[in-house]
Simulated scan of single mutants.
Amino acid sequence: MPMAPYPPAGAVPGQWTTGLCDCFDDPCNCIITCCCPCITFGQNAEIIDRGGTSCFVGGLIYFLLAQFGVACLYACSYRTRLRDLHSLQEHPCGDCLVHWCCTPCALCQEYRELKNRGYDPSIGWVANAEKMSKGAATMPPMTQGMGR
Rank of each mutant, 00 (worst) to 15 (best):
P92D: 08
Y62H: 15
Y6Q: 02
H99R: 03
Y119T: 00
P104R: 04
C38L: 05
T138W: 10
C105R: 04
W100T: 12
G14Q: 09
V12S: 04
C55Q: 10
T33V: 04
L107H: 07
I47C: 01
L82P: 00
C36P: 01
C108K: 04
L20P: 00
C55S: 14
G14P: 03
Y62A: 14
V70I: 15
D26H: 06
C36H: 10
A137D: 09
H99W: 03
M142C: 10
A127G: 00
C55T: 10
P141C: 07
C55E: 10
N116I: 08
C28R: 15
Y78H: 15
C101D: 06
W16N: 05
H99V: 00
A137G: 00
C96Q: 09
I61E: 14
S87A: 14
G94A: 07
I61K: 15
C96G: 10
S77F: 09
A71R: 06
R83I: 00
R83A: 12
E46W: 14
T33I: 11
T143S: 08
C72P: 01
M146H: 11
T17A: 09
S87M: 13
M132V: 00
C21Y: 09
K131G: 02
N116P: 05
P121K: 01
G52R: 14
M3Y: 14
P140F: 03
P5E: 11
R148W: 08
Q43N: 10
A106E: 07
G52N: 08
L20V: 01
L114Y: 08
G14C: 03
S54Y: 06
A127H: 09
R79I: 07
R148E: 02
T103P: 01
T17N: 05
N116W: 14
P5G: 05
A136G: 02
W100Q: 13
A11N: 03
R81C: 04
W100I: 09
A106I: 05
C28S: 07
P121I: 09
I47G: 02
K131V: 02
L65M: 15
P5A: 14
C96E: 06
N44Q: 04
C76F: 12
P7R: 12
D26A: 11
V126H: 08
I39E: 03
L64K: 05
L88G: 04
E46C: 09
I123V: 15
S87Q: 12
K134Q: 09
A129T: 11
F41H: 03
V57A: 12
A11W: 14
D26Q: 02
L97N: 02
